[in-house]
Design a protein around this nucleic acid. Structure first.
Lengths: 166, 166
DNA sequence: AATAATACGTCAGTGTTGTTGACATTCCAA
DNA sequence: TTGGAATGTCAACAACACTGACGTATTATT
């Protein structure tokens, strides 16, 4: 080991057992994290893929297909299937780009914003309850660990979005 | 609001914007969380469902199909398909229950333990790096928030497993 | 002006993982 | 002992990811 002066007691949080607990906590918590939106989505014959698309289009109105692809980390064929149904159902509009006509700028319609609101309300309610139960210091730690767990390219997207004004 | 003396400054961490950041952090971090095992699994033509089964069988040797079902939250038919391939491939053994012959007790084989080790090593490496970067206080907060985010029935499973000795 | 590269969409095929429905076996209790 | 509940298996289907190939419009490069 020979980690220097911080060895011993101070590094007990890095034992395999502690790490395993973190892994299992992550697994169980993610299930809770998605449970409420999933219920709403299943009523509408949508899935998580639709939720993710709606969320990030809502976050960045006018975003392009390519940008969405790099955020979501799926293939264009997979995203296209989802976008097509959302456009057909009138939740999303796709406009030819002004400066570059190859691009498509994506926006939520009124109806799309309504669903986005409904989904994020459900998810925020749970998040708010968890935050309130854990307290501000815990929340800060929560965010720190999550950020350290991201892949670098996703972390870039996260930072870019984190600091954007609503 | 009228939340009492802790209103104002101290509740800024509960704003919608803070909650949104937490939601997006959760989304991006979970991708990182599963990225390393996913790479290993794809080499072997397995998926996350196989990983989850292997993980929880390894954690609770002799567990029954029913118990695994309530942990994983899928249908028994879905789990069965995964278990069948793992058994065919010699990673898991299924033994008829001693007291109740309807039950099947599940165990990892030597080979199954080897894969479990390989997968959890990869996942632990990332978790360890994140923990080390964030520090012990952050890790405590991380775990607190995650636990508060779980559904109650999953939280029960988590607690039961959390305190079990390896 | 011709060529290459980019952005987007689509068709076809495949694999994992979830779902329901039907069914066999085993246990238990009336 | 018979009917019901619990446990697990087989079959078929849907959602959603993937790869590969191709078409089209637009922009950039030479």
């Amino acid at each position: 080991m020979a980690e220097g002066p911080e060895s011993g007691q101070a590094l007990l949080f890095l034992t395999d057992d502690q790490l395993r607990k973190g892994i299992e906590a992550m697994f169980f918590a993610y299930r809770g994290f998605t449970a409420d939106p999933d219920r709403i989505l299943s009523e509408l014959a949508y899935g998580r893929a639709h939720h993710r698309a709606i969320h990030f289009i809502g976050r960045s109105p006018g975003t392009t297909v390519n940008n969405l692809l790099s955020i979501l980390g799926v293939t264009k064929q997979s995203l296209n299937r989802v976008l097509r149904t959302l456009i057909e159902d009138g939740l999303v509009t796709s406009e030819v780009g002004k400066t570059d006509k190859r691009e498509r700028n994506l926006y939520l319609t009124e109806e799309g914003r309504a669903l986005e609101q409904r989904l994020s309300d459900a998810q925020r309610d749970r998040m708010r309850a968890a935050y309130r139960a854990a307290g501000p210091e815990a929340v800060a730690g929560f965010r720190q660990v999550l950020e350290a767990m991201m892949d670098e390219d996703l972390h870039r997207h996260y930072r870019a979005m984190k600091d954007a004004k609503v």
